[in-house]
Amino acid sequence: MRGVIRIFQEATPEDRKKYYTREWKPEKIPAFIRENIHLREFGFDHTGQGPNDRYRFFRDEKLLKKFLRYRAPYAAYSSVALYDKPWKREGWISSELVFDVDAKDIPVRPCGCDNVCEECLDQAKEIVAMIIDTLRDDLGLQEIHVVYSGRGYHIRVLDPTILRLDSEVRGQILRYVMGGDVPRLLYTGLDGRMRSLDHFMAPLGYPRVFTERSRYIILHLSGDEKIEDITRQTMNKIMEYRDLIESDKWGEFKGVIGPRVYDRLIGSVAKLNLQLVDAKVTVDLKRILRLPSSLHSKVSMICTYVKDLESFDPLEDAVPDFVKEGS
């Protein structure tokens, strides 16, 4: 553990004031927000009770700066959508596609901490990297931005092909990217009979994504989780034989735990896969997200635009000066 004393502790109103007057600069807001600030709805939380001050609109960065300096909010948010009339949330133009990975909500956390810690933040980063790979390699998407949210990461996709997709299609992208459906690989054999393939026998496209996500879940189980349809006895067996999955011997693993139990397991794993992100955020076209550059007061960290995911270290790169000074 590093010698950081105040990280993950709540910021005081004085800390917030200090942050927004001394440290925060409009240039810290990523360009993809700055260039259309006047088309976004802003929301603020002034008390720590949630973003109740909504429908806010700023014609330019200067006015936003004035507001933040004066009010030093507990939290600041901006919409993923662009509107003709953001102050009324009317005239929808487009919405980014978002994946929200919150370290504290990852369903399989070997660290077992109560809130967030270095280990589960690393885990969140790993999940983000997997999601980005699928968005690029399978869906062929570009313009993918990552923001450290304070307790996890936001993946914000601005590829022009997805900006106007409706909620239903976003839900389908979510299921694909996260491995939310058990693949049904049916085909007609040469003898004319209907047959099916297991997901791990087709190492391409969605079946591969599903296999990867399921692998991640199974290998990160602590063994104490309660999984729907899985008994304690089965869980013990999974833990005993999961090395087979690590070396990609899925067929053998299925054989050991039994095909019927395997089907049940894989059905439950699909549900856990989906819980690696907050699904509601992805399907919501009018969501407001924490404003990159703003302060996450609950944990005293900066919501930070991530230039390079691999080298990004939240405990170095997202710590405000008032925390560093106090440590």
Binding site: D137, D138, L139, Q172, R175, Y176, G205, Y206
Partner: peptide, 13 residues
């Protein structure tokens, strides 16, 4: 469903 398709580099195979 998108999950019924095989995708590669944005193309449906």
């Amino acid at each position: 469903k998108l999950t019924e398709l095989i995708l590669k580099d944005g193309e449906v195979i």
